[in-house]
């Protein structure tokens, strides 16, 4: 058995092992749910039923689209702001010394404080609260990754390109962007999961629409099966984002980083 698994196609092997892990969790959850009331721990079947209910009522797609839209807008803004600040601070040492402590301060303030402030400033039932929280939570992540990426660009390569009269546009596309791309993907990967969690959090506290709000309602009405169903939706979407989009993207842009085959 051990031999036949190790001889398997690596992709199939990885899939089999990951699926086994998920199945073990499902079985464990199913067995545990037999011992508790559905109000405390609904079974996987009851969760699936609640999910079907959300699907047929249309609540699933309505809330999912709202949450997704807020996440994308907030994250895009946070990512752009982080990149812009990184570029700006790289060009000026004074600006860097002036703004870096402020960025660190923003980063260490707990998200709950930002949500409370956002509710005071922008009110409930608005897109602004979640978008503001995502922006404030994700821009330092993008900033730090891009700033470090810019600092780690090999100046020897820049010198070489200048010596060979490489025009500025080509320097950006052939040196700066490829050198930065692993840092950009890393920023995207870290930031998107933060953004997703922040949207839910902000919607839970300060919104009247979206998955976070639906979770808050399910909690208030003690609909634990719906709570689990929404959590399942969140997990599936995070996994699609990470393994369906970000991991293949990371693999594609760092395909040149192969192991030395002639050592």
């Amino acid at each position: 058995m051990r031999n036949s698994i190790s001889k398997m196609n690596p992709v199939l092997r990885k899939l089999l092992i990951s699926t086994t892990g998920v199945l073990v969790v499902l079985i464990f959850w199913g067995l545990l749910s037999l011992r508790y009331h559905p109000l405390i721990l609904p079974s996987p079947y009851e969760t699936l039923q609640a999910l079907c209910g959300l699907w047929t009522s249309g609540a699933l797609w309505t809330n999912l689209i709202i949450t997704l839209r807020r996440t994308i807008i907030g994250y895009a803004l946070g990512f752009m702001l982080g990149c812009l600040l990184a570029l700006l601070l790289q060009t000026s040492k004074v600006l860097s010394e002036l703004l870096r402590p402020i960025i660190t301060m923003v980063q260490v303030i707990p998200p709950i404080i930002w949500v409370v402030l956002a509710v005071i400033w922008f009110g409930i039932a608005d897109d602004l609260t979640p978008v503001f929280l995502i922006l404030i939570v994700t821009f330092p992540v993008a900033f730090i990754n891009v700033f470090n990426g810019l600092e780690s660009i090999d100046q020897h390569l820049v010198e070489m390109a200048k010596l060979y009269r490489c025009p500025n546009r080509k320097m950006i596309t052939k040196i700066y962007l490829p050198a930065l791309s692993p840092h950009l993907v890393s920023a995207a990967s870290l930031g998107i999961s933060l953004a997703w969690k922040s949207t839910i959090f902000a919607e839970y506290i300060g919104s009247s629409k979206g998955i976070g709000y639906a979770l808050s309602r399910a909690n208030s009405y003690l609909e634990t099966d719906k709570l689990f169903a929404w959590t399942l939706v969140l997990i599936v979407f995070m996994l699609i984002g990470e393994y369906g989009i970000l991991q293949p993207l990371k693999k594609r842009i760092t395909r040149w980083n192969l192991h030395d085959q002639h050592s």
Partner: peptide, 11 residues
């Protein structure tokens, strides 16, 4: 310029 340590673009 032939540099002492090759300066090649890894990507």
């Amino acid at each position: 310029y032939v540099f002492q340590e090759p300066r090649l673009l890894p990507w």
